[in-house]
Structure formats: C-alpha cells, structure tokens
C-alpha cells in the first residue's frame, strides 16, 4: 500500500476490492454456466437463506453455544493453570511436560476418540474446544506472569511487599496483554473445534449442516454456512480486540 494513502482511502480501497471480487465471481459463474453444486454464485448463496429447508438460526446458535461454552471453560482453566505454574516451581516442572506434549499434538486428531471416551454428547464437543482454547491461554498467560520488569519487583520488595502483593500488583496486570493475545488465538480455535466436533458426530450445528450438504450435493447451502462462519469468526475476534482496547487503554499494542 502506498505510504501517501490516507486511512479512509485505505479502507475504501479494501471495500471496493471486495465488492469487485463479488461482481467478478457472479459474472464468471454466469458466463461459464458453472453448475451451482460445483461453485454457486453470490446471488445463489444469498437466496439459499430463504429457499433452502434449513433452520439457519438453530444451527448457528448450536455451533455458537458449543464454541462459547468450550471457550469459556478453556480460558478459565488455562488461566488458573498458568497461575499455578507461575507460583510453584515444583508444580511447573511437573506439569510442563504434559502441556508441551499435548501442545505439539494436532489436537483435532483426538476428536473421533473423544466420542468413544466421553460418549456421543455435547460434552465431548465442548471438551475438544476446551483442549483447543486452553493451550494458547496457558502459554501466553504464564509468559506474561513471568516476564515482568525486575525493577518493579525490587521496588515493591524494598518497601516490604510480599509475594502475593507482587503477584497482584505487578504480575497480574503485566499478564493482561499476553492474555488478550491468547484470547485472539483461542477464539479462532473455538470455532475450528466446534466445526470439527460437529463433523465427527452431531445432529445440528453449522458443521453438521456442511457435512449434510456434502451428502446431498447442496454446495450452495454449504457456502451459506461458510458465510455465517466467517461472520461469526469476525464478530468473535472483533469482540476480543474491542474488549482488549476497553480493558487496556494503556497498552502500546492496542
């Protein structure tokens, strides 16, 4: 992007490029007469929300509910573990091997087996998302709790502050930007987890809808689900970014 481009002009260019893409897409599908089960036109995708015999709201809410439940539990659990790791060297040494081993495993790989272990219920879906969201939080928050300004720690200690006070006044606020970085990764992971879990087994949700569209060659409905997923992802990610700004007006990366 040219350096002289103003902010408004920059946004305008992005919107224009997106709209141009949509128009080209529509025209190409028309010109080459591409069948909609191969690649539906934008207008067809728009129509599918009204014509298809699909309860869009129910499927969207099912996916959103699963994703947010797993996300919330994963974040709380991840934060708690990060605090424990930071406060106890012994526990840190004992827990870290498991964290690292599980971290390098592509976690969606365990989804089919989770259903064997926990049954074909929503709990299994939520657990998968908990596992996916938990790691970025543990790693980021424990980093944020540990990488504090040594001078501030010395300053507080010299005034008689104890470990708890240093934790509360220095480590905790210091970890906030790291926490929000973790949240951004976790919130994307939550949607991935929800879709994969629904692929493996479910009777509702956008993942179920996509899989069902494959069986019935209803590619247009799958694209309808993609659009909703994109919107959900943007909304969730945007909420995290917005919350970060509100909570940390002092943050340089904000």
């Amino acid at each position: 992007m040219s350096r002289s481009l103003s902010r408004q002009a920059g946004y305008g260019l992005s919107v224009l490029s997106f709209l141009l893409g949509l128009v080209l897409w529509e025209l190409m599908v028309g010109w080459f007469d591409v069948p909609s089960f191969l690649f539906p036109a934008p207008s067809a995708i728009f129509e599918v929300y009204f014509t298809a015999d699909v309860d869009w709201l129910r499927h969207t809410l099912a996916t959103l509910r699963t994703a947010l439940t797993g996300f919330t539990i994963g974040v709380v659990f991840g934060f708690a573990l990060a605090v424990v790791i930071t406060l106890s060297h012994v526990l840190s040494r004992m827990i870290m091997p498991y964290v690292v081993a599980l971290q390098v495993l592509p976690k969606v790989a365990i989804a089919p087996i989770l259903y064997i272990m926990l049954g074909f219920t929503n709990t299994s879906r939520v657990i998968l998302i908990v596992i996916l969201t938990f790691f970025p939080i543990v790693i980021n928050v424990s980093t944020g709790l540990a990488t504090v300004d040594r001078n501030l720690v010395h300053l507080l200690q010299s005034l008689g502050a104890g470990r708890f006070s240093v934790f509360y006044k220095v480590r905790l606020p210091n970890s906030l930007p790291y926490f929000f970085d973790g949240l951004r990764i976790a919130v994307s992971g939550a949607l991935v987890g929800a879709i994969v879990a629904e692929f493996v087994s479910s009777s509702e949700g956008l993942g179920f809808l996509i899989l069902n569209s494959q069986y019935t060659f209803n590619t247009t409905a799958a694209f309808g689900a993609f659009v909703i997923l994109t919107a959900l992802g943007l909304a969730l990610y945007g909420s995290v970014v917005f919350l970060g700004w509100r909570v940390m007006p002092w943050n340089e990366r904000a």
């Binding site: 300004d149 300053l155 006044k169 940390m248």
Partner: peptide, 23 residues
C-alpha cells in the same frame, strides 16, 4: 532505576502513589 520502570497500566498519579500504597 536505569529505566523509568513505571507501571504501564497505571496513570501518572497512580504510579507516583505506588510506594505510599505499598507501605
């Protein structure tokens, strides 16, 4: 210190207040 080592999450006022708060 060598660096100003202020708390980024505290305002100027609250940074200056810190030592009083701790004692």
């Amino acid at each position: 210190f060598q660096e100003s080592s202020l708390m980024p999450w505290r305002s100027v006022y609250d940074n200056v207040r810190l030592p009083l708060e701790v004692v």
